[in-house]
Design a protein around this nucleic acid. Sequence first.
DNA 1: GCGACTTTGTGCCTACGTTCACAAGCGGCT
DNA 2: AGCCGCTTGTGAACGTAGGCACAAAGTCGC
Lengths: 278, 278
Amino acid sequence: MAQRGQSDAAGRPPRAPAENAAEITTPMPAIGGNGMPAPGLRDRARAIPEAAVARLAVYLRVLSGMREQAVASVSSEELSAAAGVNSAKLRKDLSYIGSYGTRGVGYEVEVLIDQIERVLGLTREQSVAVVGIGNLGHALANYGGFPGRGFPVTALFDVDPDLMGVPVGGIPVDHIDDIPAVCAAREVTIGVIATPPAAAQAVCDRLVQAGVECILNFAPVVLQVPETVEVRKVDLAVELQILSFHVARRADHAPADDATPAPRVDGVAAPRGVVVRR
Amino acid sequence: MAQRGQSDAAGRPPRAPAENAAEITTPMPAIGGNGMPAPGLRDRARAIPEAAVARLAVYLRVLSGMREQAVASVSSEELSAAAGVNSAKLRKDLSYIGSYGTRGVGYEVEVLIDQIERVLGLTREQSVAVVGIGNLGHALANYGGFPGRGFPVTALFDVDPDLMGVPVGGIPVDHIDDIPAVCAAREVTIGVIATPPAAAQAVCDRLVQAGVECILNFAPVVLQVPETVEVRKVDLAVELQILSFHVARRADHAPADDATPAPRVDGVAAPRGVVVRR
DNA sequence: GCGACTTTGTGCCTACGTTCACAAGCGGCT
DNA sequence: AGCCGCTTGTGAACGTAGGCACAAAGTCGC
Ligand SMILES: NC(=O)c1ccc[n+]([C@@H]2O[C@H](COP(=O)([O-])OP(=O)(O)OC[C@H]3O[C@@H](n4cnc5c(N)ncnc54)[C@H](O)[C@@H]3O)[C@@H](O)[C@H]2O)c1
Ligand SMILES: NC(=O)c1ccc[n+]([C@@H]2O[C@H](COP(=O)([O-])OP(=O)(O)OC[C@H]3O[C@@H](n4cnc5c(N)ncnc54)[C@H](O)[C@@H]3O)[C@@H](O)[C@H]2O)c1
């Protein structure tokens, strides 16, 4: 018979493949400390939906920007516009983490930031290790945006002998054989894989062995991990292909009409965006 | 009263904000669509669902790998395992683009590749421009994975005088003032923004003015664009925060029980292959 | 102190996406 | 030639997410 596809030539033990779509479902937020307005719902499984978590992170970023500008409070309308979402959706997202708004007024920026940080687990710093200090790894190691948001990059790994000990972004590169020791010592909780695709699975295995339970993968491969490990992937080629899909759709969807490729100069188009009245 | 949040200090004209969650949903085939809201009967919507498009890109990558290994055909079971999805989902995804399988046999790798490429619009090369040749921009410009997948990077832009004319990844950097001319000449269809956040919106506006209708944004800001423009964003901080959320959940969810953080060495966990129960 | 106004929080409904399960279709074997 | 087993393609069930619309709840003005 014709030979069939085989996902992996080596007889790798089957483990749960990981896609970003994994269940983020969360049980109750119930740290039960505060007053617990208790609208009458039982405290049973108050799960935060998948998509809501991602948006909370965006709200947090927007709110941080507002705080820097000394903004004290926002309405759901304003915040949603700034975050690019529907205001009802925003309110619902916020309701998942509790009731921290004041009717007729809005939300206090400071309070919202604290609460979102609490839910996202940002009260504790998450130490990050980057593996594969090539083009991308260098950029990541040098990026100041991570430490600034509670994700200090504390360890770098590679196999290239020339890189050993060389500091990148202030941190010396270690050999991947040291992953267990270094990750343990620096309490790494998140591993970032920026190696060539062929090495990604092996690196992933090492990180998992070292106790890292969260992995951000830039290599275009589907990693196999135990189900206790959370993997998110960033695949730029896929992003580009999705954009390409839209180009194609648009091309054969409206071929005749709208031949004017010139979009409104400097925006001004799409006035009915998300609300933004006022 | 306390001042309220204001998404943008400048009186930027409101445009449609863009999130990745945006509608990828392909509008119905409705070429002559203006018939009426088609009450009740759903037209044979040839729409490919949001999520399916992203997965098709993944399937394509896996299939390419198989082709390289001279694999001639695959079953949905095999392909889905390699792509990390449920086999039923895979079949449904493939069904959106047509019926190219053979019952009792599977799919021909070659045929599937051609068809997915067709649907994703990869038959035509999509020229990419990168703006902001800093840490990240360099990595992107040097990355060989894009040209290899039909996305040649043909233009680079920055404002730094020291970078002008300097070739990165074989392409000389141009000034952003040249965006219109260069993008037109090189038929750029996709713009990648890798500038500091503060410059992102202005750069985006320029790209849009130049006729670029697809944008991949790495800056942590919500871009406002006309609705004719498709924006996808890659926000690494958000990815890390989502992972952090999982750490937090796990921590206060199973504190007593299952405290064994030791993951199975080298995998071996999750014995059930893909699919399995549920 | 009270009413009018503003904005939250959420019930409900719709749309979308995922999964199941199985009939239909095809190749190979006898 | 006909049957058998395998795999596709998809209808239907189920679950999740999105969005409207409104009652509840608080503030502000008078
Ligand atoms: N550069 C980009 O812009 C970009 C874009 C999208 C995806 N990616 C993906 O990110 C990954 C890294 O890309 P890059 O451009 O930085 O590649 P690169 O070749 O520049 O760097 C790879 C690094 O990994 C190291 N390495 C190789 N094998 C290793 C191993 N077994 N363990 C640890 N380190 C190892 C190499 O020494 C090198 O330093 C690749 O999988 C690539 O497909 C990169
Ligand atoms: N480096 C990373 O790993 C990383 C990770 C996540 C997000 N990001 C985001 O990606 C973006 C770029 O990050 P980076 O680390 O490469 O920054 P960087 O500072 O290294 O590079 C920014 C580049 O943009 C150029 N630039 C500044 N203003 C510009 C303008 N108006 N038009 C064109 N170019 C302009 C600068 O000259 C510089 O070359 C930032 O928004 C950052 O938040 C980067």
